[in-house]
Computed example of a mutant assay.
Amino acid sequence: MGLRPWGGLPKGAVMTATIKITESILLVDDQPVNLQVLMHTLERLGCKLLVAKNGETALTIAQKARPDLILLDIMMPGIDGFEVCRRLKADPSTQKIPVIFLSALDDTGDKVRGLQLGAVDYVAKPFQPEEVIARVNTHLTIHRLSREVQQQRDELEHELQVVSQLQRNLLPERLPQVPGLRLAVHYETSRYAGGDYYDFMTLPGGLLAVLIADAEGHSAPAAVMMAMTCALFRSCSTGLAEPDRMLSFINENLCKVNRDSFVTAVYAVYDPARRTLRIACAGHPLPILYRFSEKAAAEIPCDSVLLMGLGPYADVPVTEVTLHPGDRILFYTDGVTDRFNASQERYGTNRLLGQFSNAASDDPEVILKEIVDDISKFAGDCPADDDQAMVIIVVD
């Protein structure tokens, strides 16, 4: 085994603060003459040249030095080049290193076998120096760009993970404790960051305010709109008990800063003394009410205003329903009903109504789990392409 760096600073040169990382090439051949020719040919590239005279040594160097490219002979004592390539591609630590076969075997079958093993190129001996340099340059460039793209993807993934965690920090840490009510929530993003949002606020007189919203899309811009909706809701000091005033307030402020996106929402206020739920809706899926006395579920027929962020509201209608012990309410975002399976069938509102009606328990946590499991079973291996949020309230 030999390690031979080539290039370096000219005599009298002064090193500056800028450091260029030298790319390395591993040359594998059992013939010293061939290695000398290769070293002389590639010396002008300014790369660090590593040398191995057999397959075992090549594998050892590749694992330790992680070269940027390997020029690999086929006919060698011990394990041949084909086996070296197979082992390189089977090892996660070396499988991404591009391999160019450089061999006197010029049969088409040998070339095909080499490429099938994962080599990126095949050069027959005797070779032309210009051809080798051109192919080496090409694959070094591809490998370098691939690393840069992967690095950018890793950095973006890290940023999205941070955004996702910050977004989840905006959600309520714990569910409110309201006498006579039991609550449960489910929240799932299709990517790292999403646009779905739910929140609660306990108000004077024992009132409970519930907000569920869905910003357009399910990426970073949607997460920003979700955060803005959260900030507006939590910063509002008046009108919290009035669903129409709350939606008007959020919409008015979103219109001031928004130009290209929108938010759907349902805002509801429950009065435990009167057992009433007052609801305002802005382009959002209607809440579902399960009547214990009827053993059936149906959408609450609420009049809706336009999506928030598009323009001012002249008037926001409010719907009031009276709840009884055993009744339950489901608020959800459209990612629940818009889940598709492999046949491009939509889960849909009817399936959700049926699942909500036929729940085996009145425990909201159990009901939510049954719905989530049913959606997963329906979708199979098809991933969710939208965020999903659900809030269930059961009246005792």
Rank of each mutant, 00 (worst) to 15 (best):
Q151A: 15
D196H: 10
L145R: 13
D271P: 02
L183S: 01
A273C: 07
K64M: 08
Q151W: 05
I371H: 09
N54V: 02
D80E: 06
L181E: 04
V305L: 11
V185P: 01
V395S: 11
V178Q: 15
G180N: 10
V394Y: 06
T57N: 14
E155K: 15
Q344Y: 11
V99R: 06
T57V: 13
G217V: 07
R191M: 13
G311V: 00
L26D: 00
L35E: 02
I250Y: 10
D68F: 07
G118L: 07
V257S: 14
L105H: 06
V37W: 02
L181Y: 08
F292Y: 10
L166P: 01
G217D: 02
P325S: 14
D73S: 05
R328V: 00
L105C: 01
D271C: 13
D244E: 15
K111V: 12
I61F: 10
E155M: 11
L69Y: 09
E131Y: 09
L310T: 15
L49P: 05
D396Q: 13
T319M: 11
G311T: 03
T276H: 10
Q36A: 14
L323G: 08
V123G: 04
V394E: 04
A359L: 10
D244C: 12
L240W: 06
Y192C: 08
D121R: 12
P317E: 12
A280G: 12
D199N: 15
L145W: 11
L286Q: 15
G7F: 03
N34T: 00
G55P: 04
L330D: 04
M226C: 15
D362V: 08
M75S: 14
T202F: 05
C236T: 13
A213T: 02
D334Q: 08
G354A: 13
D106Y: 03
R259T: 10
L71Q: 09
A215G: 00
R291P: 07
G78Y: 04
P32N: 09
I74S: 08
S293R: 14
R86G: 05
R168Y: 03
E365I: 08
L277A: 03
D30F: 03
K89D: 01
A298L: 10
H218E: 07
V120N: 11
E188Y: 08
M226K: 08
A13I: 06
D29N: 12
D338F: 00
R234V: 08
S103A: 10
T202L: 14
